[in-house]
Design a protein around this nucleic acid. Structure first.
Length: 935
RNA sequence: GGGUCGUUAGCUCAGUUGGUUAGAGUGCUGCCUUGACAUGGCAGAGGUCACUAGUUCGAAUCUAGUACGACCCACCA
């Protein structure tokens, strides 16, 4: 016998092991995948090897799991391809920090090879905790095929792609400005830069004219937000149309501190309306200036080292006392010196847009370096066209616009990183720095030998590694075995659906599209489902520094308040926020967080994942769905207690009892709704349909309505009802399984003890697909019973009839159909409406409350309880309601335009409604009259 | 500066192509420990669908504008 409540903690782990043992998730498994089964494939967005499961992962993977479980049950050969990303910067950072904490030698002391080995060791020990967390969530990935972006196979794919793109001229080296991260000492791509508005200042400096005043001007005043870069100025630019400076163009000015002479040039770039209209040009440290400098042949003077400290230059542009000084310290020094020298012309505080590294959170420095680039513009064209042609569809569709927008303005993709952890660039340099790109050193050497015409060439390898997203871009085919032509590659590529958040459309989706089309000549997936961001219940983004992070694992297994507070306040960027966060957390969860189980969390995420909207997660919602799990558990318990045993060969189309016909039809409806909504990626609609059916149809009505049959019905009706209940419950478990896999699988097995053996685990059972079970007559009849019971209950409550009091009921004016229904469902109605007796009569008795139900009038004898005044008021209110309804419909129907223009169906419907309302009105009037004459 | 989206019950949200009296969950009120379930049952209160104008027989839904809010992209020194 089942316990009274469902205990997820006890069950979930055991169930997952069961699935694994039975190879339930293995694609192409000969034991369980039917011959001729269609393939279905989803590749997981590979989580970082350093990552742990956050709410975004939980939503993302719940959706993928719903899809894969659904398709698996529909008989497809499903591959959910799992794996992890090596996450270049993040991983290197974690291990470097670990070395520091343990006071071990840093990576430079260790050397490259030892450091990389150290990272592999780290991965072995503590990498990939997220995999186990995904299992806790129930993710039905084929773990036997797990891949890692640094695996040998995937690394080969990376090298091959690099070499081929290089040979096609789509990868090249270039010296230009890049976004430089002074903390990680590496270039990063445009996408990894976050522009933020911060409080800053703009200062005015005067540069004196070398050859004396022109038009009375002795100096030109420039405005800058970055004073320290003035040491590298190569020119001052003014707009050619700017009358103020017209005669200054071509003159030289003296650059203070640096004591150099630089020209005043004319360029379209300066805006005469802004600042002073004169712009200092620092080509090596500003993207705009770089372009101006290029156009005008102005020298680029690199001022800083990889940590953004000032350096000396070969031409001694930077005075000695600035050497090795940090850029912000240098700023203060420049300001002071400019002031001391008398060239300071003022300051304005203003909000300025500044670039920050998305991981390091420090201000990015534009730096002049040589890097590897992908010609993204060229690769983008087919990727753009594929979406335009509908080869790949975005759901919701409006994301396509975002995709187009970015693809149409795509910039060269900087792919080299000055890190150690990652795919080292397969490029080797000869003595004269001539580059040889090859699949491996041997390949490169062969080219070098041929080039130099001698055998003993000394080559050194490019030390840089590739952007992590370079290998992620290959994920849909590299994980399937490419460049080998594996059977899996042929079978599962292109994949079916990619499920991800909008934040990586550019980082990942766009690049997979480009690489997939280029190397596989086919899009990587036919559908991209973009889900929303998960926020806290106030709509704020969950972030460590806000202290509002909800860890999915905590919701699954529960956490006490002290531990939660400790988690939220540990390692904050701003430790002073800790007390505030602790207080808010204690207020939000005075008793900590209860263990809701994975199923409740999954169901919540699915139910809240409406297309195109953020998910604001609230714990009360999760609690509600935990209760839902308990409800199902108890419905199963009821079924078990009443010996509702499944019958081999039971066919829901053959049931005789009206109530059973009805639930069979309702089940069919629900199955259709759920199927259609999952197919349409409307997970919230599917979840809500299930919730409503299970709780408010199956439990609230079906199980209540059959109780009289189970208790005292004839044996034929009893056995049919038991079999139907068992069948319906099976369908419930199947339909709910993609959403709540643990609970349903457990019940599936537990209920198996009470009937014929299950042929398979629920995860492999056939998805419900019925037609022809809907029976209009049964629907009408049961709905009549439900309406009758509801009306009686409502009146009882309104008249304050004690819940325990059983009262007599009299039906008058009933037609033959109603009489038949009454006879058939008498026991049920008596029980659920708490009636003492149930009579058919020609007269409404004295002292009765009257309910109009279709053609019949139902009298509830409440002698001694009824208040004639009150009842008369109630009836009048009812009549008023119906009358206003009639008026509304009448005015509609008397509108010629409505009758002429509205569809026939709508007009007829209104006519029908009017007739019904008129009928009800006259019945209610009769009831009121009787009340007044009888009493 | 460009773009996307949102505004519906106290709260969190549904509402697909315009067509009953706009729905859930949660919270609230009243009654109920009735043999599956108090993590429950029954009944109920609660909405000018942000605002304005328009299209239409008919608008939460379509169009235009206004207000407020969110997010993304972008080089104004």
């Amino acid at each position: 016998m089942l316990d009274k409540t469902y205990d997820p903690a006890e069950i979930e782990q055991r169930i997952y092991e069961n699935w694994t043992q039975e190879n339930v998730f293995a694609c192409g498994h000969p034991g369980r995948v039917k011959a001729g089964a269609k393939p279905y494939c989803i590749v997981i967005p590979p989580p970082n090897v350093t990552g742990s499961l956050h709410m975004g992962h939980a939503l993302n993977n719940t959706i993928q799991d719903i899809l894969t479980r659904f398709e698996r049950m529909r008989g497809k050969d499903v591959l959910w391809q799992p794996g992890m990303d090596h996450a270049g910067i993040a991983t290197q950072m974690v291990v470097e920090r670990q070395l520091m904490e343990r006071q071990e030698p840093d990576r430079h002391a260790l050397g490259r090879e030892a450091f990389i080995q150290r990272i592999w060791d780290w991965k072995e020990d503590s990498g990939g905790t997220i995999v186990n967390q995904l299992k806790r969530l129930g993710a039905s990935c084929d773990w036997s095929r797990e891949r890692f972006t640094m695996d040998e196979g995937l690394s080969q794919a990376v090298r091959k792609v690099f070499v081929e793109l290089y040979r096609e001229g789509l990868i090249y080296k270039d010296k230009r400005l890049v976004n430089w991260d002074p903390v990680f000492h590496t270039a990063i791509s445009d996408l990894e830069v976050e522009t933020k508005e911060v409080d800053g200042s703009m200062w005015w400096f005067a540069y004196p004219l070398v050859e004396g005043p022109v038009d009375g001007l002795e100096e030109i005043v420039i405005a800058t937000t970055r004073p320290e870069t003035m040491l590298g100025d190569g020119a001052v630019a003014v707009h050619p149309s700017d009358e103020r400076y017209k005669n200054l163009i071509g003159k030289m000015v003296r650059l203070p501190i640096a004591e150099r002479h630089i020209p005043i040039i004319a360029d379209e770039y300066p805006d005469p309306e802004f600042g002073t209209g004169a712009v200092k040009i620092t080509g090596a440290h500003d993207f705009n200036d770089f372009e101006v400098a290029r156009r005008n042949n102005i020298p680029l003077i690199k001022l800083m080292d990889e940590q953004a400290r000032m350096i000396s230059t070969p031409e001694n542009h930077v005075p000695k006392h600035y050497h090795e000084v940090d850029r912000y310290e240098a700023r203060k020094m420049v300001l002071q010196e400019i002031e001391d020298l008398g060239f300071y012309r003022g300051k304005e505080d203003k909000v300025i847009a500044q670039p920050f590294g998305d991981r390091s959170k420090v201000v990015i420095e534009p730096m002049l370096t040589e890097q590897w680039y992908v010609n993204a513009e060229k690769l983008a064209q087919p990727a753009l066209k594929a979406v335009q042609d509908g080869k790949t569809v975005f759901v919701p569709k409006n994301w396509e616009k975002t995709y187009y927008e970015w693809m149409n303005n795509i910039q060269p993709w900087c792919i080299s990183r000055q890190l150690w952890w990652g795919h080292q660039i397969p490029a080797w340099y000869g003595p004269d720095d001539k580059v040889f790109v090859g699949f491996d050193e041997e390949d490169a050497r062969a080219q070098a030998v041929q080039h130099y015409g001698k055998d003993d060439v000394v080559l050194h390898r490019d030390p840089d590694v590739l952007d992590t997203w370079f290998s992620s871009a290959l994920w849909p085919f590299s994980t399937l075995g490419w460049p080998e032509q594996t059977p899996e590659l042929g079978r599962y590529y292109k994949t079916d659906v990619l499920v991800t958040g909008f934040d990586i459309i550019f980082f990942w989706i766009a690049r997979m599209m480009m690489m997939g089309l280029h190397f596989m000549k086919e899009v990587p997936f036919h559908t991209v489902y973009i889900h929303a961001l998960v926020r806290d219940e106030n709509g704020k983004k969950m972030s460590k520094s806000e202290g509002n992070v909800l860890d999915p694992l905590d919701l699954i297994q529960g956490i006490d308040i002290d531990t939660l507070v400790e988690k939220r306040t540990k390692g904050l960027r701003k430790p002073e926020d800790a007390p505030k966060i602790a207080k808010a957390t204690r207020k939000e969860f005075p008793d900590g967080i209860k263990a809701f189980g994975a199923d409740a969390l999954r169901f919540t995420l699915a139910a809240m994942a409406a297309q195109g909207r953020d998910v604001k997660l609230s714990t009360s919602r999760i609690e509600g769905y935990r209760n839902f799990a308990t409800k199902i558990w108890n419905a199963s318990r009821f079924s078990q207690m009443n010996e509702c045993i499944r019958v081999e060969g039971f066919d829901p189309a053959n049931v005789q009892q009206t109530i059973n016909k009805w639930i069979a039809g309702e089940t069919e409806r629900t199955a259709k709704t759920v199927t259609e909504n999952i197919e349409a990626h409307r997970y919230n609609d599917a979840a809500n349909a299930l919730y409503h059916f299970i709780w408010h149809v199956f439990c609230d009505w079906y199980l209540e309505l059959i109780k009289p049959i189970l208790n005292e019905g004839d044996s034929k009706a009893q056995s049919e009802t038991r079999a139907t209940t068992a069948w319906a419950l099976d369908q419930v478990l199947k339909l709910l399984h993609p959403f709540m896999p643990f609970l349903t699988e457990e019940l599936w097995m537990r209920l198996a003890e009470y009937g014929p053996d299950r042929k398979t685990l629920l995860a492999l059972a056939d998805w419900p697909d019925y037609t022809g079970l809907i029976n209009k007559k049964a629907d009408e009849e049961i709905n009549w019973v439900i309406r009758l019971i509801s009306e009686v209950r409502s009146v009882r409550s309104e008249m304050n009839v004690p819940a325990g009091a059983k009262i007599p009921l009299v039906i008058t004016g009933a037609n033959a159909q109603t009489i038949a229904r009454v006879e058939c469902h008498e026991d049920t109605i008596k029980r659920l409406a708490r009636l003492e007796s149930f009579l058919l009569s020609n007269n409404v008795p004295k002292g009765a409350v009257q309910i109009v139900l279709d053609e019949a009038t139902i009298g509830l004898s409440l002698v001694g309880i009824i208040d004639i005044e009150q009842e008369s008021e109630r009836l009048k209110r009812e009549i008023e309601k119906v009358t206003s309804n009639i008026e509304r419909i009448s005015s509609k129907l008397s509108n010629d335009k409505f009758v002429a223009n509205a569809p026939k169906d709508v007009v007829n419907q209104e006519k029908e409604r009017k007739a019904e309302a008129l009928h009800k009105q006259s019945k209610l009037k009769g009831a009121l009259e009787r009340l007044q004459t009888l009493n």
